[in-house]
Each structure stands twice: as C-alpha cells, then as structure tokens.
C-alpha cells in the first residue's frame, strides 16, 4: 500500500526557504511537462520528514524535488523541475 502524501506537506519545510507559501506555486515537470499546483504533487518519505523526503511528478513519477533535513541544515535539490512560478500576491508563508 502506498504511503505517499501530497504537496500540502511541503508547506512547513519550504517556509524555511521561501518567503511565500509554496504549496500554491505552479510547478512544471521537466520530464513530461505536466503543470500543476505543488500541493498536488506526490511526496514520499514524510514519516521521516526530519531526515528527508522526495517529491515526484503526479503524472510521470520523475523526481522533482528532494529535501534532506538535519538539525543544522535543510538541503533542497530541484532535479526535475523546469519551472516553478508563484503569484506575487500570495501572502507570506
């Protein structure tokens, strides 16, 4: 049984990196071009979000984002994202 959650769960960790709420950002997959709100992408590994999680494209499963958290650092990679766009009117996270 799959245990993934969705991009809503990224709001907390991304609030440490970005000024606005990123779950409403629009994300274009570099692999297949699927374009959707980050909240609707698939997030794996949140049971251990303190250590890391992987965000996959809801359409083609490509790895869009990886997050690794340690007590001192938050390391974010964007290996599979072509575009991430935000509404400038989005209130601060």
């Amino acid at each position: 049984m799959s245990s993934h959650v969705d991009g809503n769960a990224l709001a907390g960790p991304f609030s440490e990196v970005f000024r606005t709420d990123m779950t409403t950002a629009v994300c274009c997959c570099g692999g297949c071009g699927d374009t959707t709100t980050l909240a609707t992408e698939m997030v794996y590994g949140t049971d251990a979000l303190a250590h890391g999680s992987i965000v996959r494209c809801r359409s083609c499963d490509d790895v869009l984002i990886t997050l690794v958290e340690t007590p001192d650092r938050l390391v974010v990679r964007f290996p599979g994202i072509a575009t991430l766009s935000v509404d400038r009117d989005t209130p601060p996270a």
Binding site: G7, G12, D21
Partner: peptide
Amino acid sequence: VKGPLGRWF
C-alpha cells in the same frame, strides 16, 4: 508548533 501552513487546501 509552526504555522499556520498551506494556502491551497
């Protein structure tokens, strides 16, 4: 606690 979080749902 940290929040409130998320403006999509």
